[in-house]
Design a protein around this nucleic acid. Sequence first.
DNA 1: TTGTAGGCGTTATCAT
DNA 2: ATGATAACGCCTACAA
Lengths: 322, 322
Amino acid sequence: MASIKDVAKEAGVAISTVSKVLNNYPNISIDTREKVERAVKKLKFVPNKMASALSSKYAGRIAIVIDQTAQETPIDEVDMRYLSGALAKAKELGLDVITIFYSMFKDWTHDDFCAYLRSESIGGLVMFGVSKDDNVLIKLAKNREYKCVLVDADIVNPSTSCVWIDQAQAQYDVISEVLKTDNVGSMLYISGKQNGFVTDYRTEAVKRLCEERGISLTVADGEFSEDRAREITLNEGRNYGMIACASDMMAIGTISALTQMDVFKPVCGFDGITLMKYVGNHVLTVKQDFYGISMAAVDELYALMHGSKGRDIKIPYEVVRL
Amino acid sequence: MASIKDVAKEAGVAISTVSKVLNNYPNISIDTREKVERAVKKLKFVPNKMASALSSKYAGRIAIVIDQTAQETPIDEVDMRYLSGALAKAKELGLDVITIFYSMFKDWTHDDFCAYLRSESIGGLVMFGVSKDDNVLIKLAKNREYKCVLVDADIVNPSTSCVWIDQAQAQYDVISEVLKTDNVGSMLYISGKQNGFVTDYRTEAVKRLCEERGISLTVADGEFSEDRAREITLNEGRNYGMIACASDMMAIGTISALTQMDVFKPVCGFDGITLMKYVGNHVLTVKQDFYGISMAAVDELYALMHGSKGRDIKIPYEVVRL
DNA sequence: TTGTAGGCGTTATCAT
DNA sequence: ATGATAACGCCTACAA
């Protein structure tokens, strides 16, 4: 109800003065600042976001873009952590957020997307789960028209940053940990989707590790799918000393296959999702702090929107047994 | 980039005329309408949401309020379904959405909350997971200042609706289904949180059912907690013919306890979450369509914001084995 | 240091 | 049926 005009009247100053106080402009006497702050408090004034977004070129509004379909899936946990972290950090930084799910723009062109962003006065976006086929999002990130932060996709330019864990090192580490106790001569690696940005890094790391250790390696495309991993394991699992999976969900598929086949082999996963605690049987995995990653991503977007240049940011991870 | 002014110029009409076309006002000649639509298409014009929210009292902006903490929990699935459904329906209806997590306003007063809603030009809200202690949210719903739709909380007044499944009937049905194959003489019911709106309805239904069937009933407060249910089951589970749980997570706790005790007893849950498929062992449960519930809630909010009166809406459910 | 005034992109009320 | 024009609440040169 109370507007900046009311505050001005109450404080006995001009509207612009109030605005300056609100936005921490320099050259405001301590006296007027206090008068204004008292008035703000008294009237419980909160600036209207629509009005400020409208009047200023700089919009503190960002979009969180998440790869969430309406399908049933047991790993909503990841997206939810991403979202929680992003909203929390955004609130901390005073950014306004709109949430966009992939399903909402699946038939939009690049222009449609840009028009939408403009209509919402969006100044930057954080994108989760972008794959190499997501043309619209990738074009957005490469265009440099908007500030972007990609999680798990290494597109970096002056206005685009990437936030993720060190994929290669993490994959290397978790398998190394398995090898500490299980000395195997052959390994089956069930990789993630070929169009994923992380897949190559992880796979290369596995190749390097196996070469170093003299382990014979076979790579199968598990598509990040539990069922696919189960199938692969049923077909070929028997022939290898251990099975490494590029995601926990695939590890779960693999474990269920092994159980069904009634054989035991070391298995490891990647992600550290909670579901593993229920069905993982103490499997080694890479624990990612999705919440923290998301906070870091929003932090970085904030920085980009304030002039810093795009870069590649690595977040810590942990190898754990779940 | 293109504004309504540009469209007006392109179409050779006044700004106000363009606005009328855009908002489907009456009394527009078919001829000018076409001219305007052509210009809109040509310039790829999309109206600025900030400006329209600012200029009109009616804001097609709603808030989705979700009880999501940053904690690790295996049932993010539910909140994610709620969110997906709400965003999808909102997009369909042309509503703008802001997402609010409980953690964001945990130390806000009612006034703070209202100020925030005003600052965001919010016209109505959908609230999920409200409990009887959530004073701020409840006051908001009872105040009638904003249009509200509560999911799983029966507060109904001219500007507030409730959307949920028939709690009593669902609880009654799922247990009846168990009783079809297992004829038990005694039952342990592990109920949900006492401050939950659904708890009493479910518990009363169980009491009624047991009375009808001549089954001796004991109710324990499981607080919707997996661990609490496990504990209760370990302590007292042995003494009953079956154990009914007011949520799937509690059913999972109960099952793990029974497994640990190496005893078998019929168990049933409530919700129908995906996790049950992994650890439920074919347990009977109530399958709620969270996505559909959420869509219905946003639909109802839209109706409220367009003049309809608050009411109690029941969504279908299913009894299934997971 | 503070105030005046124009503008941001719409909507809505009047005239015409 | 159409067009001026005043809000909406805030930001920001520019003046004072």
